[in-house]
């Protein structure tokens, strides 16, 4: 059944993170967005390695509390790390400075090594915190959370529409892929493959657009004026304040530790 084109992530549903129910689930979306934003700022702007290690530990412990499915998260992190490996390997050799070790005629500098380590730690800490704090939300919760934080309504609506279409398009794509496979299509490195893929995307587009127009007209008939009614944001509760307070205190402690 598995053709070369079939990537493990062909259906994005299968790639979605899984997590057990946890105490984090009861924290309000707005609190989580604020927590992630503050964390990202601290992690990205700080330079000291010890602070970055602590930040990474902080996001790991949060992921444990949130009971993320380790296998899925690992796959995500691996994908990102392979991507930045290139940078990490080249940096020590290209940054001038105190040589630490030599490989053939190249010498790796301490400054470059530290810089590479910083990037690796920052990227992973923020990635894990993001997956834990926001990745465990449903797209609708994320939308209402963003709307509650005064993100322009058009962007929120656009996001909600997009999430809905992703599902529709993904299903349409699967159907068309199956039809292509039934006709013996195998993806290779040649013009035929690229043209067929172009037609696939074009057709996907035309079909989804037709469908979108149909739905839009039907909704207009029922008085839809282009706006969804967002479900009212769940009220901010004491536990949200506690969560955010403790989180910000921890971050402040991190910053103070970095200053000394």
């Amino acid at each position: 059944m598995s053709a070369p084109l079939e990537h493990s992530g062909f259906s994005w549903r299968g790639q979605a993170l899984r997590h057990g129910s946890s105490r984090l689930d009861r924290i309000e979306p707005r609190a989580r967005i604020l927590a992630l934003a503050s964390f990202a700022f601290v992690a990205v702007l700080s330079q000291s390695l010890s602070v970055l290690v602590m930040a990474l530990l902080m996001s790991i412990s949060l992921a444990v509390v949130a009971r993320l499915d380790i296998k899925r998260v690992w796959r995500r992190i691996l994908a990102v790390d392979l991507f930045i490996l290139l940078l990490l390997i080249s940096l020590p050799f290209t940054t001038p400075g105190e040589p630490v070790f030599e490989w053939r005629q190249f010498s790796a500098s301490e400054e470059g090594l530290i810089h590479a380590l910083q990037i690796g730690l920052k990227a992973n800490a923020v990635l894990l915190a993001g997956l834990t704090l926001l990745g465990t939300l449903s797209a609708n919760q994320l939308g209402t959370g963003l709307a509650g934080l005064r993100v322009p309504e058009k962007i929120v609506h656009l996001m909600l529409f997009s999430v809905r279409y992703m599902d529709v398009i993904g299903r349409e794509l699967k159907k068309m892929r199956r039809a292509m496979r039934a006709r013996g299509f195998v993806a290779c490195t040649n013009w035929h493959t690229w043209r067929a893929t172009g037609y696939l995307i074009g057709m996907l587009f035309v079909r989804s657009l037709d469908r979108a127009e149909r739905v839009h007209k039907a909704m207009k008939c029922r008085g839809f004026d282009g706006r969804f009614f967002l479900l009212p944001t769940p009220p901010w509760q004491t536990r949200d304040s506690y969560f955010l307070g403790v989180w910000l205190l921890a971050l402040a402690a991190l910053c103070l530790g970095g200053l000394q």
Binding site: P4, L5, H7, G9, F10, S11, W12, L158, S162, V163, Y165, M166, V168, I169, G170, L173, A187, C188, T189, T193, W194, T197, L200, I201, L204, F205, S208
Partner: peptide, 14 residues
């Protein structure tokens, strides 16, 4: 927006 999102899952061999 969703075509962009879905397209990142169409992997072509090189």
């Amino acid at each position: 927006a969703s075509v962009f999102f879905v397209a990142s899952y169409i992997h072509l061999p090189v």
